[in-house]
Nucleic acid binder design. Structure first.
Lengths: 146, 146
DNA sequence: GGCATATAGTTGTTTGTGCAACTATCCAAA
DNA sequence: TTTGGATAGTTGCACAAACAACTATATGCC
């Protein structure tokens, strides 16, 4: 049976996300070492804006799996850093569309390279078929709970 | 080659730990629904104390993969909730040994059951051999980066 | 048109995290 | 025995997350 996999003693790291915490810390250190003055959380917002800018804060909530207050404050901080701009939507005045500044556009290549580097360091020695299984399981977990 | 597994577009959820975030949120909701007035982070400290109490804050740092200030404040809050007590070590007066109160001992069974329930919900439909692969990969990631 | 309801975003509060700087204590070597 | 370095823990600061309560705008229905 697929159920009841977890005896005591095995719960901990799954729930606390030790692995993803370690990845995020390593990436943050790389950002700092490169003199990039952004947090991982801010980067995660830019990540989606690089794919498509001019989306609403609500769309950023959905994309980043965060609630509205979190996005409000992340956008606040990104705006203070001159990395994004809020632009009121012409159609619907409740909506802020978020656009990247030129400074933010310049960050894309360097930060994405550091992110790939981090994951390569994390996954070196892991065969790709096992990585695929791991990714699939984590996706299922997310889908089961969201 | 095991390297270079990650093309753009696949980075995001690994780095942000979507799955473990979802698990932690679900468990926190279960705690709240059960009227248990503790956070997941506090629970993660209790988790290690249930295995062995009377350990130092530094040992809690190692066990929970947190830095010293984080543990100081978690222990502060657990002490305010009357769940743990700091006891100065007789041998080494720099050290606080952390002990559980009776209230905290009572929490163990109920919270562990909710944690197992959460993981079963997360992993229902996932065959156990794939879960094993996933756990192994995450452990390797952690070991590669720590 | 006017009102109820839904949606987008903001603000306040509590909790947690990471870093740097700090205090207190211990230990070892001169 | 003193002194210098290591270790344990605390505090201050900036940033982030979750929840509740709030404002402003839009929309659908009478």
């Amino acid at each position: 049976m697929p159920n009841n996999q977890f005896k005591r003693g095995e719960l901990y790291s799954f729930i606390t996300g030790k692995a993803s915490t370690a990845i995020a810390r390593r990436l943050q250190k790389k950002f700092n070492a490169a003199g990039l003055n952004i947090t991982i959380e801010q980067w995660s917002v830019l990540y989606h804006l690089w794919k498509q800018e001019g989306i609403s804060q609500q769309e950023l909530c959905n994309a980043t799996f965060r609630d509205k207050p979190s996005i409000t404050r992340l956008v606040d901080n990104l705006e203070r850093l001159n990395l994004v701009k809020r632009v009121a939507s012409a159609n619907d005045r409740r909506i802020n569309l978020i656009y990247l500044t030129k400074q933010a556009q310049k960050l894309q290549e360097e930060t994405m390279a550091l992110a790939e580097e981090t994951l390569n360091e994390a996954l070196i020695t892991v065969p790709s078929d096992r990585i695929d299984v791991c990714k699939e399981v984590l996706q299922i977990v997310y889908d089961n709970l969201k």
